[in-house]
Simulated scan of single mutants.
Amino acid sequence: MARKGAAATADAGEPRRSSRIKDQAKPDPPPKKAPAKPRSRKPKPTGEEGDESNKEKPKSAAHGKKRTATEKEAEYAQPATPVIPALAPIDVGDSLPSYILKNEQGEDVDLAKLTEGQGAILFSIPKADTPGCTTQACGFRDIYPSFTEHNFAVYCLSHDKSEAQKKWQLKKELPYPLLSDPDRVLISALGAKDAGSGRTKRGHFIFAKGGKLVEKKLPVSPGESPNLALEFVKSLNAKSVL
């Protein structure tokens, strides 16, 4: 009887659990997740250091083809400076060469053809539509018929563009053509380019029929240039008559 009472006392002290719940296996606790490591950005391997997948990737024609040294030099090369042609110096006794200039209309003019059948006077000016140049140009305009009477044509020569020459020609009613020499090729050959400033010197040049230079007045004042040219033409024709 004593054992029975002791067992009863022990059962009274502990809560009674169901044998089914007690016998069930406890579930394993979920595994703990390791904290994520920060991803470091590594430089993309290129060339021989890259993996095989990088090497096997097809490349476009523009990026896959290696440029030659010549192609690289051409890419970074500076634009070529245009070569300005040059004429041999033209002095008294020399003839006008065959060389093309534009007139005020933008038309090609061959210098060698200016003296076919007549003489030609070329007067050089520093810049169109400036006071001194206007005085010189209008002086040749006012006595232009006298030059044609002696079988001489008149041409104004400057580095101005044809458009500027045309505007000036219309403004001052100049009856003769204007020759544009933007690179001062003919101007330099005639000795009318200033070595220091590069500007055009004022002067006039008289070519006889056939193209030979017979008079070179450089420099000359704008007011005297037309009259001096006409006096020389008259004297030249007087000698030919004699």
Rank of each mutant, 00 (worst) to 15 (best):
T9E: 12
L228R: 09
K171W: 00
L178S: 02
L101A: 04
H204P: 15
Q136Y: 06
A189M: 03
K217T: 03
I21T: 12
K22F: 11
K33P: 14
A61H: 14
L236Y: 08
L236V: 08
A69V: 14
K167V: 07
D160R: 05
F140S: 04
T200Q: 03
A36W: 10
K167R: 12
D160A: 03
V233Y: 06
A229Q: 02
D129C: 04
T134M: 03
A74P: 00
G132A: 08
S180W: 15
L96H: 12
D11F: 00
I143S: 10
E163F: 11
K32I: 09
D142S: 12
P89I: 00
A189H: 02
G196H: 07
S162H: 09
N54V: 13
P29R: 13
D94Y: 07
D194H: 07
I90P: 01
S53Y: 14
C156F: 01
Y144V: 08
K171T: 04
A36P: 15
A86V: 13
K72Q: 05
L179M: 09
S60E: 15
I100K: 13
K59R: 11
T130M: 07
V109E: 03
H159C: 07
K209A: 02
Q118T: 09
I90S: 03
T81L: 08
P182L: 10
A195I: 00
A238K: 12
D142G: 11
A36I: 14
K217E: 02
E215V: 09
L190N: 01
D160L: 01
S162R: 07
E173N: 14
S225G: 08
P222N: 14
R20G: 13
Y99M: 03
D23L: 11
R202V: 00
K55Q: 12
A229V: 01
K113W: 04
D51H: 13
A80I: 11
D181A: 01
A80Q: 14
N227L: 09
I125R: 02
V220C: 02
S188M: 03
E73A: 06
V185P: 06
V241K: 15
L178G: 06
V154P: 07
L228G: 07
P45L: 08
A164E: 04
S188F: 01
K102H: 08
P82L: 01
S146Y: 05
R67V: 05
P45M: 14
I121K: 04
D94K: 09
P89K: 09
P182C: 08
C138G: 02
S180R: 10
E107H: 12
K72V: 04
T115E: 02
I143K: 09
K239Y: 05
L87T: 03
K66I: 05
Q105L: 06
I21E: 15
G117H: 14
F232L: 04
L242M: 05
S98Q: 05
L174K: 04
